[in-house]
């Protein structure tokens, strides 16, 4: 899959769900892109580098979200 197509799918998919949640597991993103994990990882990494997505980590688990979305960005004064 081309990067731009994957990016569009991710932005659309995550924006649609923004009302209910802002952080997603890697597997959720791989499903949206419709690729196997290793291929999806390359595309998702590029989205991180381009700051479309950002990491969220509890320390034990990692999640992904659209950059700047979600409650935490505001509540921690980091947006």
């Amino acid at each position: 899959m081309e990067y731009e197509e994957a990016k569009q799918k991710i932005v659309e998919g995550l924006t649609k769900k923004l009302k209910t949640k802002s952080k997603f597991y890697f597997n959720d993103l791989a499903k949206i892109i419709g690729e196997k994990p290793r291929v999806a990882k390359k595309l998702i990494n590029q989205m991180i580098t381009e700051e479309v997505l950002e990491y969220w980590s509890s320390g034990s688990t990692s999640m992904y979200g659209l950059k700047g979305t979600g409650k935490q960005a505001h509540s921690e004064h980091e947006d």
């Binding site: 580098t49 320390g59 935490q72 960005a73 921690e76």
Partner: peptide
């Protein structure tokens, strides 16, 4: 605990 802090990349 947890958050969006990290180093770039």
């Amino acid at each position: 605990h947890g958050g969006i802090v990290g180093v770039f990349g």
